[in-house]
Design a protein around this nucleic acid. Structure first.
Lengths: 332, 332
DNA sequence: ACTCTGCATGGGAGCGCTCCCATATCCCTC
DNA sequence: GAGGGATATGGGAGCGCTCCCATGCAGAGT
């Protein structure tokens, strides 16, 4: 049951420990003959390097953490999460780095987590869409732990992050509504302590400003119920509205329900656009026109930036914004 | 920037290395005075044990892997995944174990993964709903790596797994349809190389057998499209059917679409029941009656079983089946 | 007073690896 | 043919920890 060690491989190959180590780590200064002998011995013995021993001396852990904060957990089943994690996984697989999933489910665990992350257990950290001015990324960077955020943070300036072009996507969506001749376009905005919330609202305003239409805003928290509530508020305030841009598909779903209940037809009376291009969007009645976001690409990009930083490279472009585009379905 | 070591703590506290180690690991054989001095020194220096050094000597990694196989990746955004992972996370957080997320995205990576998992990098492995007779769990156990599966495996006997009562849930769903006076009940079954697929079909048959009704089966792969295709096949074969039990919500969604397209009303002409109680189920029109499964509990349970095995405990009950129950909405 | 038991303690050995230095080997140049 | 520079190689030291053994010391028993 005992795993072979470096020494065993060296003995088998008839070389010294150093040479085996060089072969494993891809040093060029090894003769072809020695390299071959070593590789053969490795294969024969089924040798696998002991990560702990290596970490102990190199101080690299070859591990990065994906931190999912408490608030995020609720949103766990949002479609963008699945895509992002898949992207992270595939980018990381190419580098041999391991991904550990760190979830802080309570404030006390949040401390434990910070301790863990700064305690040389990981080479870098990926943080997904945090709320408000979370001090974590700043502290990690201060302790020398490279960090890359998913989603533009609001209230702090992070060195490196990857985000969707939320503003551009929203602008496009609202322009589409305008182009269809809609005159009273409302928006159901997301929480304003998150970049996504702020940016999608900004995009809405961009488009309206260009056309000098009046703005009409209600806020939700990305949940369906909040979308329904916001829709009710909007209808009460402006019964004559003829279009709604919701900052998330889920909120759009809630809004759709309320619109129907109020006897309005979609898109006949009111056109509706969501954001996310989630699976749910394709299944509503009518199917939802929405803004597509490249979640998997975002994950890949985050991982790539982090890996570069871990390798000590200077990032040419520490902030990456990915394109979004409108997906036309029946609701607008 | 240099982290303090055990030795530094010992010096500060005026004791030997051994005593500090004993304090950290909770050995009872330490005088109150020494313990106090050590704890003070630890706090003052902000000492955090080096995991790699500890792993090197103990051969414990305090890490477990959650393996998500290639085929699983597609299903990543299925709601049960989010719930399960949350349950695993919360159960693990209580034990101090770390969760690493291992995804095999291609067959070649599958080998690499197996190598990794058996190469003393993790203390145990959690495997989520595998297809067919995957050799991985057997190999892991053979190498002495404790393994717990999520979902009953088909074609191999695993020592320990956690599953939902898929058969019971399906039986309940179909009985409900029978109780409503439905006489021609079809099912859209899942893939028969997965426990969920087999068991939900078995439950359907249980219920039909009791009532001596005729069975009517089509197969899908849990995707919406496959559900739609199966529904078309069923309608072609038996235009007079008046109820459908789909083995997943997503397939039910596909079936619902086809039923509507064929001019049938739901639940008027055809009653429809899904399985999973996913978010999507609540948003269809009409909302889907479905079988609820306790995903988070499943995750917790899996983690708990694994932890017990890692601690070398004999499992009183290595197989755990969790209850499911019917959620009545409008579609049946 | 002396031995014996039992617990607290210090510190050597060693986990498996990388780093680096000293040494061996080779080939080229004059 | 001798000297010099490169390149390949072996192996000691040491990363920070746990394990365990030897030692110290107090209190109990005779």
């Amino acid at each position: 049951m005992n795993r072979p060690t470096l020494e065993a491989v060296a003995a088998r190959a008839g070389v010294g420990r150093g040479t085996v180590s060089r072969v494993i780590n891809g040093s060029p200064n090894v003769s072809a003959k020695a390299r071959e002998a070593v590789q053969e011995a490795i294969a024969e013995l089924g040798y696998v390097p002991n990560r702990a021993a290596r970490t102990l001396v190199t101080r690299r852990t070859d591990t990065v953490a994906l931190v999912v904060s408490e608030s995020e957990l609720r949103v766990f089943d949002e479609p963008y999460f699945a895509g992002t994690i898949r992207g992270i996984g595939s980018a990381l697989a190419e580098t041999g780095l391991q991904l550990i999933l760190a979830m802080a489910q309570s404030p006390s665990e949040h401390d434990r987590l910070e301790h863990y992350l700064t305690g040389q257990h990981v080479d870098g950290v990926l943080l997904l869409s945090l709320h408000g001015a979370d001090p974590l990324p700043g502290r990690l960077e201060a302790m020398g732990v490279p960090t890359v955020l998913g989603g533009r943070p609001v209230g702090l300036d992070a060195y490196s992050y990857v985000d969707m072009d939320n503003r551009g996507g929203a602008r496009q969506a609202v322009k589409h509504l305008l182009a269809q001749g809609r005159a009273h376009i409302a928006t159901i905005a997301g929480p304003q302590d998150m970049g996504v919330g702020v940016d999608r609202l900004a995009g809405y305003r961009d488009a309206l400003l260009a056309s000098r239409a009046e703005e009409l805003v209600a806020y939700g928290d990305f949940s369906e119920e909040s979308g329904a509530a916001a829709m009710r508020a909007l209808l009460a305030a402006s019964p004559g509205l003829d279009a709604v841009f919701a900052a998330s598909d889920l909120m759009a779903v809630g809004a759709l329900r309320v619109l129907k209940e109020s006897g309005r037809s979609v898109p006949g009376d009111v056109a509706l656009v969501g954001f996310e291009d989630s699976k749910a969007a394709a299944h509503t009645d009518p199917p939802l026109t929405t803004v597509h976001q490249p979640t998997e690409a975002m994950g890949r990009q985050m991982a790539q930036l982090l890996v570069a930083r871990i390798h000590g490279e200077e990032l040419r472009q520490p902030v990456v914004i990915l394109d979004t585009h409108l997906v036309l379905r029946a609701s607008a």
